[in-house]
Design a protein around this nucleic acid. Structure first.
Lengths: 213, 213
DNA sequence: TATGATAGTGTTTATTGTAACAGTATTTAA
DNA sequence: TTAAATACTGTTACAATAAACACTATCATA
């Protein structure tokens, strides 16, 4: 699979944003306006190249006929030397979607030990006991099971949070590292959907909340 | 939240199918053609009613400006007296998507004990030891954790299968009820994504593989 | 039995959106 | 250093779509 050029990636990301934000892909004209192209042909030729590389599928003649074929994860995985940043995950927002992808962190994954990494912006004070503050960026290693007592990024009813995970044969307990937060216990009779996204590896804190690019 | 009429549900489902099949929603004309309406206004008035009930959002003036707002699950949950059938889940197909929804089973959920139920068509012979055959329809109760040794519907890399689940503090073992299938063991160092969809409650087998409607 | 909500037909118009033509720089790689 | 791929501008024509107006028929239900 040939990788996308920078420009092509930007366009792919824009299509992805539109798709998840609006529920449908952009028109060629909308792409033109977003990138301030003077011509529709700039868009068309880009789209055809992206299609040739297999990242989208164009339905010729149809309005908004752009079908995404790769997941955001697979797109970002190709860029080495950076970690995709998923922003703060708002309630109800699917994990690989919406306003998710901010500018990737210009940090080599090897700094955190490698593997399939992504980053989340931490919301709230549930992990202050572990020295994780509101606004920090948490680096997560994607895996489905973690050691008892480890901190994991957990998806609870579509909302991503950091919790300490304690798993026994018939219950899953999620503890916040802050006494003012209660424990959450999940037993087999509950129908809540809990997905362990990955293991917490560390944080990045830029006191001035600076933007990088 | 007001529930949809039969006709409105059919249209919603069609939009969902298009969205997942093509990557973008249908145009009003495509909806008209699919339902063999003589007029676009039949479509428009339906869409406006469905929007008023909160299931979609219309972007006026835009081609294919239909945004789905409810998940398939929430749609089907409103219909009591039947269990949504998700068909056989092919590799790479998201669980709540694509060709997923076949005609719901006309079976009261209470027969299986209630809760949030759905059904899957079983592919393959991995569970013959438990008397579950290829082509059977398995009824699943949605929950995220199950008792050790119980049979669960598990999503492994986007593919749904039935397995016996054995969970310890640092590994998850999935066993097939058929000696010719090997065990799958997942330890914290693996990055595979395992999602427990729910607990296996039983099967429905119609020897002639009849269709119901 | 009214009355409102639902489920339609038919037509016209304005707008949205894609395709195809003919070009020119700029970058990347052999 | 040449050739190919990428990254564009500008224009025109035509097809695809949504919106608006004016109607009729059916269905639940109070």
């Amino acid at each position: 699979m040939k990788s996308l050029t920078n420009k092509q990636l930007k366009i792919y990301e824009f299509i992805l944003t539109c798709q998840t934000e609006n529920g449908f892909p952009p028109t060629q004209a909308e792409i033109r306006d977003h990138f301030r192209f003077g011509s529709l042909n700039a868009v068309r030729s880009h789209l055809m190249l992206i299609e040739k590389k297999g990242y989208i599928r164009l339905s010729c003649g149809k309005a908004r006929g752009i079908q995404l074929k790769r997941t955001p994860a697979s797109i970002f995985r190709q860029q080495d030397g950076s970690i995709p940043l998923l922003g703060s995950i708002a309630a109800g927002v699917p994990i690989w979607a919406k306003r998710n992808f901010e500018t990737p962190l210009p940090i080599p994954p090897s700094l955190f030990g490698g593997g399939e990494l992504f980053a989340l912006r931490v919301c709230g004070d549930s992990m202050t006991g572990a020295g994780i503050k509101n606004g920090d960026i948490a680096v997560i290693q994607r895996k489905s099971c973690v050691e008892n007592g480890e901190i994991a990024a957990v998806l609870i009813d579509q909302e991503a949070t950091l919790k300490r995970v304690y798993l026994s044969s018939n219950s899953l307990v999620l503890k916040a590292d802050n006494p003012s937060f209660g424990d959450l216990e999940y037993t087999p009779d509950k129908s809540d959907v809990i997905i362990i996204l990955g293991r917490y590896l560390g944080i990045i804190r830029t006191e001035n909340n600076r933007c990088w690019s």
